[in-house]
């Protein structure tokens, strides 16, 4: 994944020693043996990346133009898989909800993380503890997390419903059981488990705002809210954008939480693209169409990714 640091480092507020060193770098950089070591050290990187990323992508594309049941030779079918998919209602539905799911989670995550980071950075008390605790949901294996929540959302027996019942909000909500509502608990869990990470990233960005800038604002009489909207937010916007982009990509690719909570159901209402592709390949034995789904999803993600990166870059300039 794109390194935030990569982008951050280009930010002016990021005091960089790197630039100073770059001039010195030449001195060692000219050292021929180090260049040779670099080439040597990079060989395994490129070989492995080619084997595990390059070849599979080529293979997926090839597969997407074929029919293959899981065994035996590929049977070329041209664009058949793609035309089938464009005509397929489930594919269109799944694409829609995948986008809905990815954007809802990403926006929710970044919004909550930003608010929390602002709140924590404003009041120093307990600062460190929150940094540790809020990342728990991101640490626990997503499978375990999803199993807990899916049992928690069961009507009557689930703990969420038990608690809602106790406080008078009704204890028999069956969100996961209806294709109208099943996506909401999934979005909730997606947000719940991802906020901790985004929080740390955004808090890191806030903490890099030089104290002098904030003090200046305080002297100017800005209250916490003004300070946040006028000073903090504009300065961390590039990081938020990158975080948003990455979160969209991760959620878009996310398989574990949805699979463990709903296996894509009921009636395929939560079958986001990775799940649809998994089912297409491994339940229906149509690996060609599954690969075509993956290629379409991949193209979409690359577009999202490049838009996100470009936006955050232009923000910085």
């Amino acid at each position: 994944m794109t390194s935030l640091k990569e982008v951050q480092s280009k930010e002016s507020q990021h005091p960089k020693q790197g630039r100073v060193f770059r001039s010195k770098k030449k001195k060692i950089g000219l050292d021929g043996t180090n260049i040779r070591s670099a080439k040597f050290a990079l060989i395994p990187v490129f070989v492995l990346l080619f084997l595990f990323l390059g070849l599979p992508v080529i293979n997926s594309i090839q597969l997407s133009f074929s029919r293959w049941g899981g065994l035996g030779p590929l049977e070329p079918v041209g664009f058949q898989n793609y035309t089938d998919l464009f005509a397929d209602e489930q594919m269109r539905y799944s694409s829609r909800i995948t986008v809905l799911y990815a954007f809802s989670v990403a926006i929710g995550v970044v919004a909550i993380a930003t608010v929390l980071a602002a709140a924590v950075s404003a009041s120093v008390r307990g600062h460190k503890i929150y940094k540790v605790i809020w990342f728990f949901p991101g640490i626990a294996p997503p499978t375990a997390v999803a199993i807990f929540w899916s049992s928690g959302f069961q009507p009557e027996t689930g703990i969420v419903n038990t608690i809602l019942g106790k406080i008078g909000l009704g204890g028999d909500h069956a969100w996961l059981a209806s294709s109208e509502t099943a996506l909401y608990p999934v979005i909730f869990v997606g947000i719940w488990s991802a906020v901790g990470f985004a929080f740390l990233v955004i808090l890191g960005a806030i903490e890099q705002i030089p104290i002098s800038v904030r003090e200046a604002a305080t002297v100017d009489g800005a209250n916490i809210r003004q300070q946040f909207f006028k000073i903090t937010l504009p300065l961390i916007r590039p990081v938020m954008l990158i975080m948003l982009t990455l979160q969209i990509i991760w959620t878009f690719n996310g398989f574990t939480v949805v699979w463990a909570m709903t296996t894509g159901g009921p009636a395929d209402s939560t079958s986001i693209l990775p799940i649809l592709a998994y089912k297409e390949a491994f339940r229906f034995g149509r690996f060609g169409t599954a690969a075509a789904m993956a290629v379409i999803a991949g193209i979409f993600l690359m577009i999202i990714g490049s838009i996100g990166i470009r936006l955050s870059r232009s923000e910085q300039r």
């Binding site: 390194s3 595990f52 999803a297």
Partner: peptide
């Protein structure tokens, strides 16, 4: 080098799973 490696970070897992499996 940076661009190549960076490109490696955006390949979605969903594209990899089936070829991995085959290989």
């Amino acid at each position: 080098v940076m661009v190549t490696v960076l490109a490696g970070t955006v390949v979605p897992a969903i594209l990899l799973v089936i070829p991995f499996f085959k290989a």
